[in-house]
Design a protein around this nucleic acid. Structure first.
Lengths: 357, 357
DNA sequence: CTGTTAGCGCGTTCAC
DNA sequence: GTGAACGCGCTAACAG
């Protein structure tokens, strides 16, 4: 009540270190040192106290832009994802954030929409803003050159989920070959003899790996593979719907086991299945990929290959921090294992229906 | 093949404007102007060409940090959301991005987890990094002081979804009073006589509004309101589950109509309902809020009050840009209408079951 | 049309 | 223990 004035420097535009120094009655560089835990021990306790008080009274907020210019470090990490609407990115980003926040980093997230232009632009901006490192899950194979170019700027780049052939970067991926195989084996065990994939963009490594593994094992298991040529322009629900419609329009033999390259595609596939008057899993079984949050609540609950999203984020963040602290170290490539989570969207193959007639 | 050298300045750490100028054989400020579309007309076409070539040859990337220090503008907009795992933020951010990208802004997203500390820290960092404006959907009533303090720094702040009493800021909200009423009316029309709410944190304006409107109309409609005292610590699936368990543990009369303050809470409520051996919508109807992506694919599909997420984002972005361009303009408060989307999670009230006996 | 000069806010020498 | 001076990379006056 007394003279308690919550002075947050009302009215003032932005209080600078110079003003803090003036109010505290010391030189600007003394103020700088007093406020910096690394150097404050050189300053008398009394002065430190005075400066601290002045700073908080005035509502001083160090200018990270100016500081960054000097220190060449901004204590921030840029993250580029392809699509924030993909529920899988939630856990991933959470993993990154919780991993680096203790070290004082702030995480800046950006979207690429899987468009090359935007990806390049956003990366550029992040580098220009001098983030200390970049983590991206949005890389395409065709971005190899782009990434190599960025590396030369000195900003560490970490690849998560999607690797890139020929880019010698630290990465945290998952065993997509194993994942594709898990999906196929699951469908095979359920008795499906005609299967098909809903493929993600062909210039994204992880989709290619999943697809190839699935196809090879399908062949090895002597299953009929009715995968269409067409691939998704982007891994979204809408594209999943489109591909599934195409697949169903293929005529006999119609696949009863579907492997969608990610959960969103799988959801689109469910839509198309229903729209075609078919039941899931009664007529067609669907397996997704990622095991994103909420897919266990879908109708029906989605069988999916699980990626440890949060852990991928955590590890990618650690690689990023390591690269910041020692930019010369050789890039590490971590590959995590995946597991299959069986739920309601996959079931036994329907009994062979009225053959030719 | 010839001499085509894809020189991206390999090896060089970071190429500066000074080097570009040196290579082009001009003064640094001439180079600066040549590269700036605003000023390049003052420079001879030949020189512009030479500088441009030198810049691209060297792989010059303007240092936004330095530029920001000088220009006091960074062409970036900070966004603070409470929880990236909430599927509702997807459309919202998309709305922001698509709205401002044409003007050259980059959007930097950050999470607060609905924790006051983190919220303050993140806002601070964003201001320190000199984003040109901040849009947040994560404000609590108790943040009024904090926000007022930030305003004095000169960084425009726009409130989206969640308003804050007493903070005279530009805002884009939705008519939560109407929303709460829509939910109640829907349940009442279905014949539910005992209802209950699963409430979001009580210091968040939009939840309070929804709740109050629902409660008042429930009273006016002479329904029994069995809403528990307890509120969610954060609007998540887990909290929804907890609140629903509490509600079901209340004993008779048990509510048959549930209004969850957002979709995640509603999903948690579905979990708890099933776990208690009850059916949705057979025994209990559930209405959510937000109509986030994918809730139409849930089992059962969620009835929900729809917010125009992308439009909220778009409008918030426009307010932000307006504030950047004219910081003195009076803050505009936009309120959007909401609608109810009826799906499978709500149905007729079950016939009165075995009364006392 | 182009070069000169100054300084954004801060951290860091190097003196005293 | 503290002050003085310089420069990070860039843009914006002011010459000429």
């Amino acid at each position: 009540m007394e003279g308690m004035e919550r002075s947050t420097a009302l009215g003032s535009r932005e209080v600078t270190l110079k003003e803090v120094a003036r109010v505290a009655g010391v030189h600007i560089s003394t103020a700088s040192r007093a406020l910096d835990p690394t150097n404050s021990w050189r300053i008398s306790a009394a002065t430190v106290e005075r400066v601290r008080r002045a700073a908080s009274d005035l509502g001083y907020r160090p200018d990270m832009v100016a500081r960054g210019l000097k220190r060449r470090r901004t204590t921030s990490i840029g993250v580029v994802v392809s699509d924030l609407e993909n529920p899988f990115v939630g856990p991933l980003i959470r993993g990154i954030v919780t991993s680096v926040e203790a070290r004082g980093f702030v995480v800046l997230v950006t979207e690429s929409f899987d468009e090359h232009e935007r990806f390049a632009h956003v990366l550029d901006h992040l580098v220009s803003r001098r983030v200390d490192a970049i983590i991206t899950t949005a890389a395409h194979e065709s971005d190899a050159d782009l990434l190599r170019g960025l590396v030369s700027t000195g900003t560490p780049i970490v690849l998560a989920v999607r690797a890139v052939e020929g880019a010698d970067l630290p990465s945290v991926t998952n065993d997509d070959v194993h994942g594709g195989r898990l999906a196929l084996d699951h469908l095979a065990e359920l008795g499906h003899e005609v299967v098909a994939q809903l493929c993600g963009p062909p210039d994204i490594r992880s989709f290619v790996d999943r697809g190839r593994a699935f196809a090879e094992h399908a062949a090895a298991s002597a299953l009929v593979d009715r995968t269409i040529e067409e691939t998704a322009h982007e891994p979204t629900v809408r594209e999943g719907r489109r591909l599934m419609e195409l697949t169903l329009g293929l005529g006999e033999p119609r696949p009863t086991g579907i492997f969608a390259h990610n959960d969103l595609l799988a959801i689109g596939a469910m839509d198309a299945t229903l729209a075609a008057g078919l039941a899931c899993p009664g007529d067609v079984s669907i397996v997704g990929y990622n095991d994103a949050p909420l897919v266990d609540h879908l109708s029906p609950p989605l069988t999916s290959v699980r990626l440890p999203g949060e852990e991928i984020g955590r590890l990618a963040a650690e690689l990023a921090v390591a690269a910041i602290e020692d930019p010369t170290a050789a890039p590490r490539a971590i590959s995590l294992d995946v597991t299959l989570v069986v739920r309601g969207s996959s079931g036994p193959a329907p009994r062979a229906r009225s053959r030719p007639a």
